[in-house]
Amino acid sequence: MTLTVNELTIHHGAICAISDVSFTVPKGQLTAVIGANGAGKTTLLRTLSGLNKSTHGTATWNEHNLLHSKPETIVRHGVSHVSEGKAVIPELSVVENLELGAIWRKNKKEAAESKAAVTDIFPRLGERLNQRADTLSGGERQMLAIGRALMSKPELLLLDEPSLGLAPLVVEQIFQTIRDLTTTMGLTVVLVEQNAMGALKIADQGIVLNLGKVAVTGTAQSLIADPQVRAAYLGY
């Protein structure tokens, strides 16, 4: 059970957003994808979850081809995507947002167990189940977005900039939770981040994207130690 991406190329109209990108994400590991604005990180993630179309290449998870499937099919194969910008539905209540994540699951008992597990991970959500999602703070919304994705019982979790616009303390807390998802629940995680240092600190391996191409890959520790990566992305 690995995520295997091979020679992936993605175009936005005439612009090439991702060019000939290959990498693998081993099961149970946390992979950070870092890079500047416009490096193609979000496009990459949206393509893996079926929201964007690719031009060339392959991407498979559990031998399931991710590139020619719809998002609603991909989630049924154990891949959950938390898209950019605290992806919750503000008009729905917290519990409705959570239940939405499990809406396709036939076994309602298991779905209820997932709900208990999510409120266990994020007790704040458990206290606010009947509030509308737009009454939550930014951090709580991000928790809800991740919680909704967890309700789909994923094996692979794709996270797009969970730290965006959050206070440093909250970011730390969210990152710790993401690390725990890998360590204690055995989830495979792809974490796309602008906050390169924060992401690499909790990651097992890292991929640096630059203008749609893979610039550097390696263990997270080796990237943190790499002088070029430090200068270009970690800011010191």
Binding site: E72, R76, H81, V88, E96, E99, L100, I103, S152
Partner: peptide, 24 residues
């Protein structure tokens, strides 16, 4: 009902609905 939740979620945010497995 779940159908109602699908209808509302698809109306407010088709993208999040699809990512959650709703056949929008």
């Amino acid at each position: 009902s779940n159908i109602g939740l699908s209808l509302r979620a698809s109306a407010y945010s088709p993208e999040i609905a699809r990512l959650s497995g709703v056949k929008v």
